[in-house]
Simulated assay, not measured.
Amino acid sequence: MEQKKGRLFLCPTPIGNLEDITLRVLKILKEVEVIAAEDTRVTRKLMNHYGIKKPLISYHEHNKTKKGEEIIKLLLEGRDVALVSDAGTPGISDPGEELVKAAIGENIKVVPLPGPSAFVTALIASGFSTRRFAFEGFLPKKDKEREKILNNLLNENRTVIFYESPHRIVKFLEELKEKMGNRRVVIARELTKIHEEFFRGTVEEALLKFNAEEPRGEFVIIIEGVSKEETDDISLENVKEKALEKVREYLKGGMTKSQAVKKVSKELNISKNELYSDIHKGIT
């Protein structure tokens, strides 16, 4: 007879205020045989607060391969396991997603429980559109990868959400200003805690604030999406830049200015007079 498999429960934990935990999560944490925690010290405080005594196993970014295999083994042996992060919903910007994939690969039942999430909490109080949004989490550490992501979001008309740490927030805002301009942002920190704070303003204003005071706490950065008018303006500038590049290319190939302008005008469906005007303005 095949061994009955355990279940992997995804249990959201408070992002600050310990009262922000569901009755169902507390029930599951008391019933499972093992709790897999991002930081066992943090989870132990939560467990002590609610009088929960269960074995803890460490599972985080730096041991996810080895510990992930151990957790899957426990599940295959028929033991129920609860996965928690330090704060919020496991699987969001943490290695929980990899454990979920591994469990699904072994045909282990994954049971998600609803609960706190920092980016959702910040988003609904931002005042920006919640109808369509893009959650990006933490940017990669490599500069080229960070640059690529920000460049791809240049024309994004959805609300965009990032996470950032206190020691990198200023660098993030500088990159944001350089790549995406002086956009309107809402920056939330210490959510659900005594010193909860929402900053609302432009990227330049945020830089003034966080250069003048020491950033503390984990940050949720919410960026307002560009309007259709702004998108149209950006797209027009891109077309103009591309047109001028093509004109220069054809001039190097031996065409006259008149020939190059006529050819590019036809290729990109842009007015010859407008193209001549841009050339005279020296737009590059």
Rank of each mutant, 00 (worst) to 15 (best):
M1K: 10
Q3I: 10
Q3Y: 11
L8S: 02
P12G: 09
V25P: 03
V25N: 11
K27H: 10
K27F: 04
K30R: 15
E33Q: 15
R41M: 09
T43Q: 06
K45Q: 10
M47K: 09
Y50Q: 08
I52H: 11
Y59K: 13
Y59P: 10
H60T: 01
E61L: 03
N63P: 08
K67V: 06
L75S: 10
L76T: 07
E77K: 14
G78T: 04
D80G: 03
D80I: 02
A82R: 01
D86L: 01
D94R: 06
E98G: 15
L99D: 07
A102T: 01
P112Y: 10
G115T: 01
P116T: 01
A118I: 02
S129L: 05
T130R: 08
R132Y: 12
A134M: 09
E136Y: 13
L139T: 07
K141G: 05
K144Y: 11
E147Y: 05
K148A: 14
K148D: 12
R158E: 09
F162E: 11
S165C: 03
F172V: 07
E178Y: 07
M180I: 11
R183I: 00
V186M: 13
I187T: 03
T192P: 01
T192C: 10
K193A: 06
H195K: 10
E197H: 03
E204N: 15
E204W: 07
L208D: 15
A212T: 02
R216I: 02
R216N: 03
F219I: 01
I223S: 00
S235L: 15
N238H: 14
R248F: 04
G253E: 15
G254R: 14
M255W: 11
Q259V: 01
K262T: 09
K263E: 13
L268R: 08
I270H: 12
S271Q: 14
L275Y: 00
Y276M: 04
Y276K: 09
Y276W: 12
S277H: 13
S277D: 12
D278L: 15
G282V: 06
